[in-house]
């Protein structure tokens, strides 16, 4: 998926789970670009065999954001939220999903 692609464009409402009522939930995932060395991911790769967990060739550590947003927040706004604050486009790729 290309950086910043919006997926699952059709917003679906979550069932009423509490006092907040039904709220569309948006997920933004941010990962370092492939060409950016990720020493934290490498440290994880090196730790796994020490736990006896084998077969993991690479790990990229990123960030996962869950946003409760108003119904009228459009794709363009979500794109700006992701690309202008949650991710730094110089070093990171991101995806936006409506759940």
């Amino acid at each position: 998926m290309a950086a910043g692609d919006l997926t699952g464009k059709r917003a679906t409402k979550r069932e009423n789970t509490g006092s907040l009522g039904t709220v569309p939930r948006v997920v933004v995932d941010v990962v370092p670009k492939p060409e950016i060395l990720d020493p934290q991911g490498q440290a994880i790769v090196r730790a796994l065999p020490r736990m006896g967990l084998r077969g993991v060739r690479d790990v990229r550590q990123g960030k996962h954001f869950e946003l409760d947003v108003d119904d009228d927040v459009d794709a363009e706004t979500l794109h700006r939220i992701a690309g202008e604050l949650l991710a730094n486009p110089v070093i990171e790729n991101w995806t936006v999903r409506r759940l």
Partner: peptide, 17 residues
């Protein structure tokens, strides 16, 4: 200043952790 766009590029985690 990099985050604000006044200077190009970015500063990331040291290679040696």
């Amino acid at each position: 200043l990099c985050e604000a766009g006044l200077l190009p590029g970015a500063l990331v985690r040291n290679a040696g952790l």
